[in-house]
Nucleic acid binder design. Structure first.
Lengths: 175, 175
DNA sequence: CGAAAATGTTTAGACCTCTAAGAATAATCT
DNA sequence: AGATTATTCTTAGAGGTCTAAACATTTTCG
């Protein structure tokens, strides 16, 4: 059970050579995407040793900080849509990591609590994430890391604004 | 047909506030991931106007540079696994963007060629990607962009090495 | 030559994510 | 109070990605 496969696919030399050679003028998006893939795979490979999937890690991380929140709050904090949260949490409940409870004051909301087992994972999993981060930025000057943080944050803000603008401007059913 | 939905989900203020406030010491991975999501959504929203899905864009971009390559080569260039390439290409063939042909000298390899229709998309789609890149880095000092490029490239290299090491060191079935 | 190994494509099945729409419950407003 | 609106969770269905394994076709080599 809980058959979490470690990824074994090759991020081939092909990709690395590709990036080292022609980095044209606006392939930043690709760099960002490939970096995400690398980070995800590295963490996934480590989490698999504890039979934890990447999708579950996302929610565990939030719950370790504060559990007893609703699924909707969890979705917002994770930046994921409700159905994603829903299916992850039902699976995690089946695995015994969390418990979903309705509290007396509302029959609509579902509150999510960690089980002791879910809470115990923190000690093993957090160091894995720290290791991945450490491996990833090995050899990168701190000021470059800082600049990267600034850049990514601005990008996220710019793109959120762009998305809001597209929704406003592009979706009028009628005037 | 070709019903490609533009994403409408909110990258809520919740996320932005989250990032602006506590950016702890090693949440770089999350920043990178959220940036990827933003970039993907922004491009997706624009591609949807031409009924092109994000998954197809990835391969079109490569084929505009050079078509007549095998699926395996395409996989390597896209950095994706063969089954992913396979299903994308069969879908794209159904849409009339590409043609998959076996050439006389080999009955094993499948060569992929753009149709005129697939080739024609370039004129509309490339400007969209450029726009997304432009929007994303708006207001970011060029030297920060350069540092970000360096950092991401190093991260990709570090993580590829890490993955190779894990495969070597972690997978021995027997001594 | 013919068996074994390597290569390339395809199928099967799983996970994570999304949008769209349904259902249940809570809040609001006349 | 009762009807309408809003919120939250759930279901349904799709896209895109992966691993594992089956299949087909070369290539290699005894």
């Amino acid at each position: 059970m809980t058959d979490v496969a470690a990824p074994t696919g090759r991020i081939g030399d092909t990709i690395l050579r590709h990036w080292r050679e022609a980095v044209p003028n606006d392939r930043l998006a690709h760099l960002v995407k490939d970096a995400t893939r690398g980070l995800t795979r590295a963490l996934q490979a480590r989490l698999a040793a504890q039979s934890v999937s990447f999708g579950h890690w996302v929610f565990l991380r939030i719950l370790w900080e504060a559990d007893g929140v609703t699924q909707r709050q969890l979705s917002a904090q994770a930046g994921l849509m409700e159905p994603t949260t829903y299916s992850a949490l039902t699976a995690m409940e089946k695995l015994g990591y969390v418990e979903r409870r309705k509290l007396p004051h509302s029959r609509k909301n579902v509150y999510v609590f960690l089980t002791p087992r879910g809470r115990a994972l923190k000690a093993k999993l957090v160091p894995m994430a720290e290791e991945v981060n450490e491996v990833a930025i090995r050899g990168v000057p701190p000021e470059d890391v800082a600049a990267t943080r600034r850049t990514l944050l601005t990008m996220i803000e710019n793109l959120a604004r762009d998305e809001a603008a597209l929704d406003q401007g592009g979706n009028q059913k009628d005037a």
